[in-house]
Computed example of a mutant assay.
Amino acid sequence: MDYKPLSDYPRDAVDRLLNVIHLFRDIRATSEWQYDVLLKRSRLVTLAPGEALLHAGDVDQWVYFLLRGELQVHVDDDAAARGERPLAEIRPGEVFGDLSMMLEEPRSATIVAAPVGQSIQVLAVDCTLFGDLENFSLLHLPTKLVFYRNMVHSLRWKLEVYRSRYPAHELANSHRRLKLYTGPKNCKEELVSLAGQARNLARILLDWNAEFGSGQLAAEESDMTDFLESILS
């Protein structure tokens, strides 16, 4: 596994790469300086076929965006080592690792690169700074609001996909019953509410995944792969 800071790549290539990721694009639109702070907390990870990225039981605050290749989700390291059929696949454009970060719980699965095919490239973001809702010394309130708005949107979208596929399931309307924030915007009160929503949505999504397996929800963005390869090569 090869880790490289984004500073190892030409800045214009990095900007084009991150412009396709809503979180980075939205933070850059809010503040170029805050965008630079986040770049320093991010890195590109390249994996060889069959190599593990995350292990069940790991504890960390990293969130990941798959840029190129395919990852497989296994229940644990032993299942991955035995070559068992994966619980799910992760494809380019998908965000993962967000549930563990939101709930501050150990990783629930082992994630490995597909055993055959091209090398896999992942953007890893250290989200430690987003977790402390009282500290705005590095990441300011508008930046944290952007992060949690993105997380809530992403989680609700995944839950809506489950709902559309299994409308009669007992979990189908769970996320719709969560209270939405209706107070003043762009304030700490909204931030606290969004963070709470994200945690509650993450818990519901974890319950869905326990029954049906994660990794089946994200949209197929195959055209993104060629674009990423061209700007990172």
Results as ranks from 00 to 15, higher is better:
133 L>Y: 04
134 E>I: 00
134 E>W: 02
134 E>M: 06
135 N>K: 10
137 S>F: 10
138 L>K: 12
139 L>S: 02
140 H>E: 14
140 H>A: 12
142 P>F: 02
142 P>D: 03
142 P>K: 02
143 T>W: 00
143 T>C: 10
143 T>M: 01
144 K>Q: 11
145 L>F: 07
146 V>M: 04
147 F>G: 00
147 F>L: 01
148 Y>T: 01
148 Y>R: 01
149 R>F: 03
149 R>K: 09
150 N>T: 02
152 V>D: 01
152 V>M: 04
153 H>S: 11
153 H>N: 08
153 H>F: 11
154 S>E: 13
155 L>S: 02
156 R>N: 10
156 R>D: 11
156 R>W: 05
157 W>A: 11
158 K>V: 13
159 L>C: 07
162 Y>N: 08
162 Y>V: 05
163 R>S: 13
163 R>A: 13
163 R>C: 10
166 Y>V: 06
167 P>F: 09
167 P>E: 10
167 P>G: 08
168 A>C: 05
169 H>C: 00
170 E>A: 14
170 E>G: 09
171 L>T: 06
172 A>N: 06
173 N>G: 10
175 H>Y: 15
175 H>A: 14
175 H>L: 07
177 R>H: 12
177 R>F: 07
178 L>E: 04
178 L>D: 02
178 L>A: 03
179 K>T: 15
180 L>N: 12
182 T>I: 09
182 T>A: 12
183 G>R: 11
184 P>D: 12
185 K>E: 13
186 N>K: 06
187 C>D: 14
187 C>P: 02
187 C>Y: 03
187 C>G: 11
187 C>H: 09
187 C>S: 12
188 K>H: 14
188 K>L: 07
189 E>P: 00
190 E>D: 04
191 L>Q: 01
191 L>G: 00
191 L>N: 00
193 S>A: 15
193 S>P: 06
194 L>T: 02
194 L>C: 03
194 L>V: 04
194 L>D: 00
195 A>P: 04
195 A>W: 05
196 G>R: 14
196 G>Y: 08
197 Q>W: 05
